[in-house]
């Protein structure tokens, strides 16, 4: 099978690390030069979400609304209704939480062409602690009709996703993180397709289905499993909604055992989405690696991944558990 070429642990050691929010800022600034209808809004976090890069190049099309996330969504809706293509950014906890209702009623309900591109999602926010770490944003956004949910795995996929969601007419949630994370895709070899999951590694024993930062963790887990003679298929499910049901079911059918991997609560995120589809279409033993219905806390992001059970070792353990059930 012709999968995308992988950089991780293949050509660079250690792999290059770039934050997805940095890739977003660069991609948005580039796109701004190509489409004069793009406007960008931020709520006093432009330096963190990296919309500052757009703001510096196109100050007249950048709107700072201050620390007012509800108004951020409302103004974006008004701009979209007047024909603009707004990209709005703030931290995920504020954009999906504080502003949930205006996002729901003013953007998702009328299906407006607003791109909600939020950074600092998940526990990898790190030291700021549990108040700033979303464990529930994918669940909230996935439950809204009309909304597409994209969780890119690395900087390369983020840059491509920004272009893809710009080309797609309708509301989209793009979830990004704070820390620099491994670049796993070759910009020349990989092609992000909205709504399509991608097989990154073939295997017949167990399917590791991951999104976001957990894709690189799943690839590392697959290496360790290979050392034990277990062939793990790795699926990058970067579009969480609409879920690529065909590819998910095919991977489940090929392996007969599934582990989902996400930096998000096991309630309502990727694990839930996969379980919903498999439960109806192809019941398959599965395990969910994710945050076990608890909030985050302060710490380094790497320590938090360990503390919340989001490491390659945790994925390997889950794979072993599900393989035992597959054998039963």
């Amino acid at each position: 099978m012709d999968g995308p070429r992988l950089l991780l642990a293949k050509t660079e050691s250690p792999p290059r690390a770039v934050a997805t929010r940095d890739a977003y800022g660069d991609a948005l600034a580039q796109l701004g030069a190509e489409d004069p209808d793009i406007v960008v809004l931020d709520a006093d976090l432009a330096k963190s979400t990296k919309t500052i890069k757009f703001a510096e190049r196109f100050p007249e099309r950048f709107f700072e609304v201050g620390i007012a996330e509800q108004n951020l969504m409302g103004i974006a809706a008004g701009l979209a209704l007047a024909g603009k293509k707004p990209f709005v950014s703030t931290f995920a906890v504020f954009g999906t939480g504080r502003a949930f209702e205006p996002l729901r009623n003013s953007i998702a309900y009328p299906a407006l062409n607003v791109k909600i591109c939020l950074s600092h999602a998940g526990v990898t926010v790190g030291e700021d602690g549990g108040s700033h770490q979303t464990v529930e944003d994918i669940a909230l956004m996935r439950s809204l009709p009309n909304l597409t949910v994209v969780v890119p795995a690395d900087a390369v996929e983020t840059a491509q996703a920004v272009r893809a969601i710009h080309a797609h007419h309708g509301p989209v949630y793009l979830r990004m993180g704070r820390p620099s994370v491994p670049v796993i895709f070759d910009a020349e070899g990989y092609r992000f397709r909205l709504g399509r999951a991608t097989v990154l590694r073939e295997g017949r024993d167990v399917a590791l289905m991951a999104c976001g930062i957990m894709v690189s963790q799943a690839l590392a887990a697959a290496e360790r499993l290979a050392a034990e003679g277990i062939e793990a298929l790795v699926l990058n499910v970067s579009t969480v909604k609409p879920l690529d049901e065909e590819t998910v079911c095919a991977a489940a059918a090929r392996t007969g055992a599934v582990v989902t991997c996400e930096e998000h609560s096991v309630i309502g995120g990727l694990g839930s989405a996969v379980a919903e589809v498999l439960g109806e279409r192809r019941p398959t033993p599965m395990e969910r690696v994710g945050i076990k219905d608890v909030f985050g806390e302060s710490g380094t992001w790497k320590d938090l991944l360990k503390a919340r059970g989001l490491t390659p070792d945790d994925i390997v353990s889950a794979a072993r558990r599900v393989l035992r059930r597959k054998a039963d």
Binding site: N71, G74, I75, A77, G78, A82, G83, K84, N105, S106
Partner: peptide, 17 residues
């Protein structure tokens, strides 16, 4: 509109455009 507070915010966005 209908969820109170939303409409005036949308109107601000339109006026900005």
């Amino acid at each position: 509109t209908g969820s109170l507070g939303n409409g005036i915010s949308i109107a601000v966005g339109m006026a900005l455009a």
